[in-house]
Amino acid sequence: PDFTLHWNGITIHFKGIDEEQFRHLRELLDRGVSLEELEELAKELIK
């Protein structure tokens, strides 16, 4: 499924991740993950 997340004025689209992965990403963003960390995470998910 696809998810869209609005965070700090940025709209991020996640394609092909499951709800569990999306929930994990939201928790990280709510905790204050940096954009660099988010990019690293995205690379991991894409593999």
Results as ranks from 00 to 15, higher is better:
Ser34Phe: 05
Glu27Val: 06
Gly9Cys: 02
Leu29His: 07
Lys43Cys: 05
Arg31Asn: 13
Thr11Ser: 10
Pro1Ala: 04
Asp18Tyr: 05
His6Gln: 11
Lys43Tyr: 09
Gly32Lys: 02
Lys47Met: 15
Leu28Gln: 08
Gly32Ile: 09
Leu25Phe: 08
Glu27Asn: 12
Glu20Thr: 11
Val33Ile: 13
Asp30Cys: 01
Asp2Gln: 13
Ile12Lys: 05
Ile10Glu: 09
Ile10Phe: 06
Asn8His: 11
Leu35His: 05
Arg31Thr: 13
Ile46Asn: 14
Leu29Ile: 08
Ser34Met: 04
Asp30Asn: 13
Leu38Trp: 06
Leu28Lys: 05
Glu27Ser: 11
Glu27Gln: 09
Glu20Phe: 12
Arg31Ile: 09
Asp30Tyr: 13
Val33Tyr: 12
Asp18Lys: 11
Leu5Lys: 00
Glu44Asp: 08
Asp18Glu: 06
Asp2His: 12
Asp18Cys: 02
Lys15Gly: 13
Gln21Leu: 14
Glu39Asn: 07
Glu40Asp: 09
Leu5Gly: 01
Ile46Val: 08
Leu38Asn: 00
Gly32Phe: 08
Leu41Lys: 05
Ile10Cys: 06
Leu29Gly: 01
Gly16Cys: 04
His13Cys: 12
Glu40Met: 06
His6Val: 14
Glu27Phe: 07
Phe14Thr: 01
Val33Met: 14
Asp2Ala: 10
Thr11Cys: 05
Asp18Arg: 05
Leu29Gln: 05
Ser34Pro: 08
Phe14Ser: 00
Phe22Ser: 04
Trp7His: 14
Lys15Ser: 15
Glu37Val: 08
Val33Leu: 10
Phe3Gly: 01
Pro1Ile: 14
Lys47Arg: 06
Ile12Arg: 01
Leu25Ala: 01
Lys43Asp: 13
Gln21Trp: 07
Asn8Leu: 08
Leu25Asn: 00
Ile10Thr: 11
Ile10Asp: 05
Ile46Leu: 14
Glu36Pro: 06
Phe22Pro: 00
Lys43Met: 10
Lys47Phe: 15
Thr4Phe: 13
Ala42Thr: 02
Glu39Asp: 06
Glu37Pro: 00
Leu25Ile: 05
Glu44Met: 03
Ser34Leu: 06
Leu28His: 07
Lys15Cys: 02
Pro1Val: 15
Glu37His: 05
Leu5Met: 06
Glu36Asp: 11
Gln21Ser: 14
Trp7Cys: 04
His6Trp: 06
Glu39Leu: 13
Asp2Arg: 02
His24Tyr: 15
Leu41Asn: 01
Gly32Leu: 07
Ala42Leu: 15
Arg23Tyr: 11
Val33Cys: 03
Asp2Pro: 11
Leu5Phe: 06
Glu27Cys: 15
Gly32Trp: 06
Arg31Lys: 13
Leu29Met: 09
Thr4Ala: 12
Asp18Pro: 05
Phe22Cys: 05
Arg26Trp: 09
Ser34Ala: 07
His13Arg: 06
Ile17Lys: 01
